[in-house]
Structure formats: structure tokens, C-alpha cells
């Protein structure tokens, strides 16, 4: 078993708890133990905090990092927003002495010190890494293949972009999450402008909801166009924007899609034989029934 400190963030534990629980259970079956990171907080939200003052964003994220340093475990997480804060701040503080000294000056007030002793990973990249899990092992863990379904992958932004500050290659037309989806027996469909943002980030969802939803709406149209049965993502904030966003799109624009939205770990749980109620799928705003009918 490889052990990681599981950084939860806000939206998974507090709005889509099934995504949290599915991540723990499915990972355990694949040799990854996600341990609780006691006392962690919001990452903090990179759009809101970074926009107000980058220095405060660094200090707040560093507090979360220090908690994992104290556990002597790398962090694994399941949200792209958290990835931006936690991964990027860790990287910046490790490589910029001036920045690290400034942050440690503040952390001293709460008896903490950032040492730079751990790494930060998105669970999706651990699942894809064949030295850790890999597509083959995922395929072997499937009990209920999602055969006959078409799934549109939404990568979200902060997992792979900006590419210079990541390590996952080109951000124009990646296929690795599609490989993870296809390992479950589903067909991962390509659609127009796949790498476009969900519309929620940067504080825009709170600043101008219709503007933000209009971006989501365009993505949904592009997915419908190719006959997708569901969307999958690796970010609970994108999940919220696509799932609850569809209710808001109906209210504001009068357009109804009924497109089920799954965190990848929920899909993985389904394919590994977890029941919809074990996955908390009834908590989704958009019913997942039409999709479940195809596979169960």
C-alpha cells in the first residue's frame, strides 16, 4: 500500500461526499491508501484568494502543506482548484528562497515552518502512472464494465495548465484521461473545444453567473453534438458547474440537457461494482438514472 495524505478541499466533502468516499474506496482496491489530513482547510480558492493578494494565498496554502509535512506523507487530491493552490504553492516555495522566507515569517506566528519535504499529486495522475497504478490495473479491477456508453471527458484547467508549471505535456489535445475512461469499458468521445474551461473559475461564477453559465452551456452543446451519455471530470468545482449549473442554465436560458455528470472516481466506483447509493449519486442535481440504466 502506498500512503498519501488526502487533501479534501471544500466542494467534494461538503457538496459531493460520494466523490470523496469513492476515491478512498476505489484507491484502496488499487493499492493506494488515502489517509485523513486532519485540520486541513480550503486550499484556499486560487481565484478568490490569488486575485486579492498572492502572498496571502501562498501563506494559507503553505499551512495545509505543513500539515502533510508533519505527517511525512505526499499529498494526493481530487480537485483541480486544490491542485493549483497546493501543487503550485509547494513548487514555488521549494524553488524561491525569498518567497519561502516571507511565508515562514508569517507561519512562525502559528509555530509552523514550511520545509519543502513532500510532493503533491492529483489522484488522476497517480491512477494513470503505471509505476503506481496504471491503466492495466484499473482495467483488471472492473467488475461492471460501462460498455455501450459514450463519455465526454472534461479535463478542467488547472490540472494541466499552465503547462510550463506542470509536467503533463501538451494541453491542446491530451488523451490520458480518455484512456482511464476506456479502461472502464466505456467509449471516450472527442468533442469540439474539449480543453475549454467549464466557466466557473477565477471568481467568475460568483461575479457574473450568466456569463459563467454561458461558457458551460457551450461545452454541453459540444458534448451533446457528439452523442455523449455523460460527462466525467476530475474536479468537484467543474462537477458543480456542470451538475448544478444545468439547473441554473434551465432557469436562466430555458435550455434543458439532463446530462449526467460524474467525478472520474465515481465512475471508477461504479465500474468496480459499487452501488449508486454507496456512491451518493442521488445527491447529484441531475439524475444519473438514464446512464445507470445503460450499464446496470
Amino acid at each position: 500500500m502506498r500512503e498519501y495524505a488526502f487533501f479534501l478541499g471544500c466542494i467534494a466533502p461538503n457538496r459531493y461526499p460520494g466523490a470523496e468516499s469513492a476515491s478512498i474506496i476505489t484507491s484502496r482496491r488499487l493499492g493506494i491508501e488515502l489517509l485523513p489530513l486532519n485540520g486541513a482547510s480550503c486550499c484556499p480558492a486560487p481565484g478568490a484568494f490569488g486575485s486579492i493578494d498572492l502572498n496571502i494565498w501562498y501563506a494559507m496554502a503553505a499551512r495545509n502543506l505543513v500539515l502533510a509535512e508533519q505527517m511525512e506523507r505526499d499529498i494526493a487530491l481530487i480537485c483541480n482548484g486544490c491542485y493549483k493552490s497546493i501543487y503550485e504553492v509547494n513548487h514555488k516555495l521549494k524553488h524561491n528562497d525569498e518567497l519561502r522566507d516571507g511565508v515562514n515569517e508569517v507561519l512562525k506566528e502559528i509555530d509552523m515552518e514550511f520545509k519543502g519535504s513532500i510532493d503533491v499529486w492529483h489522484l488522476a495522475e497517480l491512477l494513470y502512472d503505471e509505476n503506481i497504478v496504471g491503466v492495466e490495473k484499473i482495467r483488471e479491477s472492473v467488475k461492471v464494465p460501462l460498455t455501450g456508453t459514450k463519455i465526454a471527458v472534461h479535463y478542467g484547467c488547472h490540472l494541466m495548465k499552465p503547462k510550463k508549471e506542470r509536467h503533463m505535456g501538451s494541453t491542446e489535445a491530451p488523451r490520458w484521461i480518455e484512456e482511464l475512461v476506456e479502461a472502464l469499458g466505456a467509449e471516450a468521445v472527442e468533442y469540439r473545444n474539449k480543453m475549454q474551461c467549464c466557466g466557473a473559475g477565477g471568481g467568475v461564477r460568483g461575479y457574473d453567473l450568466p456569463h459563467s453559465l454561458d461558457i458551460t452551456n457551450e461545452k454541453l452543446q459540444n458534448m451533446i453534438e457528439v452523442g455523449a451519455d455523460a460527462v466525467t471530470e476530475v474536479c468537484p468545482f467543474c462537477q458543480l458547474q456542470f451538475d448544478r449549473g444545468q439547473i441554473e442554465i434551465e432557469e436562466k436560458f430555458g435550455i434543458k440537457y439532463d446530462m449526467p455528470v460524474f467525478h472520474y472516481n465515481e465512475l471508477l466506483g461504479l465500474a468496480q461494482g459499487m452501488s449508486p447509493s454507496e456512491l451518493g449519486l442521488d445527491l447529484h442535481a441531475i439524475s444519473t438514472e438514464p446512464f445507470l440504466k445503460k450499464v446496470l
Binding site: 495548465k161 491542446e172 473559475g201 477565477g202 467568475v204
Partner: peptide, 12 residues
């Protein structure tokens, strides 16, 4: 100024 979603497409 507040319409940027910080998607980083422009940066890439």
C-alpha cells in the same frame, strides 16, 4: 478585469 476565469489557455 474580473471576467478572466484563469483558464490559462492564453498562457499556454
Amino acid at each position: 478585469l474580473w471576467f478572466c476565469t484563469t483558464c490559462y489557455s492564453c498562457t499556454d
